[in-house]
Design a protein around this nucleic acid. Structure first.
Length: 606
RNA sequence: GCUUCCGUAGCUCAGUGGAUUAGAGCGCUUGCUUGCGGAGCAAUAGGUCGCAGGUUCGAGUCCUGCCGGGAGCACCA
């Protein structure tokens, strides 16, 4: 927002140093870290160190020399438009803006651009974010929710940064786990179907757990039990064979039950305000992936060891000419001719690149699959896809429960829907006195927004590569550094504006609007507003939703402090009151923008 | 064995080279509501940033080694 001033000052410093034979290091500008005034600053330590090496420091320490240079440079700068004063402190050159002009510029930028404040320029690259890849025939648990939240926020960030963004989901709809559910249903529950989308989806998980109990080898089995278990196992294998052979009845059963799962998934994604653009199914890339194997063999990338009774493999390190073990060797086709996870990922990537013209492909996948994805990217590179360089794995640590790891097989999972329902219940139980004037439908809606806000923020406010132990009381806390804290700042801002019946407009901004003694809380708040664009950009470039989560809290924190310390509606001076209303309106706007990037709703009341 | 992530306050975590004093939240202690919504604000206590070297004018931050913990390592996904 202040590049012009910065450039001007930088030119002057460079000119001065060139004229005086000072070997100037690169200037790195940062906002001044003290509260009370604004500006930007740069240090001269590196320059001082350079000078010392040239024997020109006159036995001064680096900080002393830096201070000397800062003082000299300071003399060159004065009277620039918008700059109030310049100081040289501890080796730093601090350049302060005129408060009223700075405040005006920030608030004006926000109100003028509204929802687009902070948006990056349109870029030519297309980004695809792949997330929400649960298996069908199981259920969506809290670990999937972390994946979905991270993926959606990343997609929102890249979109906001100016990339054309495609959201992709890739459910796993085949394999032994799926067949196990089909077998269980067919054998014991044929014809049954619980009412309700979630009930039906969750019921499939119940079948899966029961089936695994029946099929699991137990200690001290009687011969009869062993025989029974082996008979079940044979039936399951037969079911798999039929599915593979395209048996119409098994396929039909598979389709119907798969739809139950997908219906539930779609409803859950809707609760999370996620709108997937492209659905890839594992079953769709199964056949193409086998064709790819032949292509890779023909190109000399894969080695066919089937004649020796082996599989088709890719010796990745060897093909890349690496001497040290890095990607190792991986199988892309089993000895029996069936494809693997890796094979399908290759087929999927090809489709992304060729059909969707994706330049940059982001995979939001559990961090444990890091090696697998590195191998896939390496093979794509060998295969000749330039986009392989721009494949990025956004890994995230796994979510476990206080009692241990989640396991669908054992049924030890915390389902997203359970947490969702609990969240809504808790919000409603808090909320009675204050929302008398709201209808029960409005209260329900707000409860959902706040419950989800708490849950999503708890997922985003920890670095993605850290593991999380999911404690429901912590995830659904509404106090302190939480989603509702940020939402509450928005509610308060909204409440003030509503009481004043204030419609912000940039035409209300005059050069003298902020020409009064700003409280330090006002200054801190404006400082936070001004940082939104660069934080949004940083979060997108570094693929780090956490950056935005941290920022949103800092902004809300600045507003809450302002709210308590600085009166708005009670301000007697009409001009100051108007200025503060504009500031509140700008804050509300940036809170909305930040919350939106975080996939959290901004309720007007709560 | 190799690879990778992590180790910061009692607990959960921010902070990836620069500033007075390493920051939040929870929990602990204490104030604030005849006030724009207290899901809040203000304040107190609590840290040799795992250990040891190194690079640098400057290291919680970069490099090396060690200690401790998690995860992954070809016919599962």
């Amino acid at each position: 927002m202040f590049q012009k001033e910065q450039q001007l000052v930088e030119e002057k410093i460079k000119t001065y140093c060139a004229a005086n034979d000072i070997q100037l290091a690169e200037l790195k500008w940062k906002p001044i870290p003290f509260s009370g005034e604004w500006g930007f600053a740069t240090s001269f330590f590196q320059t001082a160190a350079n000078e010392a090496k040239r024997g020109r420091s006159e036995n001064m320490s680096a900080p002393q020399k830096a201070q000397e240079i800062a003082e000299q440079v300071k003399g060159q700068i004065s009277g620039e438009a918008g700059i109030r004063h310049v100081e040289a402190v501890k080796g730093y050159l601090n350049i302060y803006f005129k408060t009223s002009e700075y405040a005006l510029r920030v608030v004006d930028e926000v109100l003028k651009n509204g929802a687009n404040f902070g948006r990056g320029k349109l870029k030519s690259e297309t980004v695809m974010v792949e997330y929400a890849q649960p298996n069908t025939h199981h259920s969506f648990h809290i670990g999937h929710a972390r994946n979905a939240a991270l993926g959606e926020v990343l997609a929102r960030l890249t979109e906001f940064a100016g990339y054309r963004t495609i959201r992709a989901s890739y459910p796993g709809d085949l394999g032994l786990g799926v067949i196990t559910v089909l077998w269980m249903y067919d054998k014991f529950y044929k014809g049954q179907e619980p009412a309700g989308v979630h009930e039906r989806g969750q019921w499939l998980l119940k079948l899966y757990v029961e089936a695994n109990q029946l099929l699991e080898k137990k200690e001290n089995e009687t011969p009869a039990e062993t025989a029974q278990r082996e008979a079940y196992e044979a039936e399951r294998r037969e079911m798999y064979r039929k599915w593979d052979a395209g048996d119409p009845q098994v396929r039909e059963l598979w389709h119907v039950t798969r739809r139950w799962s997908l219906d539930e998934l779609r409803e859950i994604l809707q609760m999370l305000d996620i709108d997937i653009d492209v659905w890839f199914f594992e079953s769709d890339v199964d056949a193409p992936s086998k064709a790819i194997v032949d292509e890779l063999i023909a190109k000399g990338i894969a080695d066919d060891e089937r004649p020796q009774g082996g599989a088709v493999i890719v010796k990745i390190d060897e093909k890349l000419g690496l001497t040290k073990e890095k990607y190792r060797t991986n199988v892309i086709l089993r000895a029996d001719g069936t494809s693997l996870y890796l094979t399908k990922d290759l087929a999927l990537a090809k489709e992304k690149f060729e059909k969707y013209h994706v330049d940059r492909s982001i995979y939001v996948v559990d961090t444990r699959q890091s090696l697998h994805l590195q191998q896939a990217f390496a093979i794509l590179k060998l295969w000749g896809f330039a986009q392989a360089e721009k494949c990025h794995h956004l890994g995230y640590g796994f979510v476990s429960l206080p009692e241990g790891a989640m396991s669908s097989r054992k049924g030890r999972v915390t389902l997203f829907k359970e947490v969702y329902d609990e969240a809504v219940k808790r919000v409603l139980s808090l909320n009675v006195e204050k929302s008398v004037e709201l209808s029960s439908a409005e209260r329900e809606k707000i409860a959902r927004q706040i419950g989800m806000g708490a849950l999503i923020y708890s997922m985003l406010s920890v670095d993605n590569n850290k593991d999380i132990v999911f404690h429901i009381d912590e995830a659904l806390s509404f106090d302190g550094r939480t989603g509702p804290y940020i939402q509450n700042a928005h509610v308060r801002a909204n409440s003030i504006l509503k009481k004043a019946n204030f419609k912000p407009s940039t035409s209300a901004l005059q050069p003298e609007t902020f020409n009064y003694d700003l409280a330090k809380q006002e200054i801190e708040l404006i400082e936070q507003l001004s940082q939104f664009p660069q934080k949004a950009q940083q979060a997108a470039e570094e693929y780090r939703p956490l950056v935005m989560a941290t920022y949103a809290y800092d902004l809300a924190n600045a507003f809450h402090s302002f709210y308590h310390a600085v009166p708005v509606l009670q301000t007697e001076d009409e001009k100051i009151k108007n200025a503060r209303l504009l500031l509140v309106a700008a804050t509300k706007q940036v809170l909305v923008n930040a919350l939106h990037l975080l996939d959290i709703q901004a309720p007007d009341a709560m």
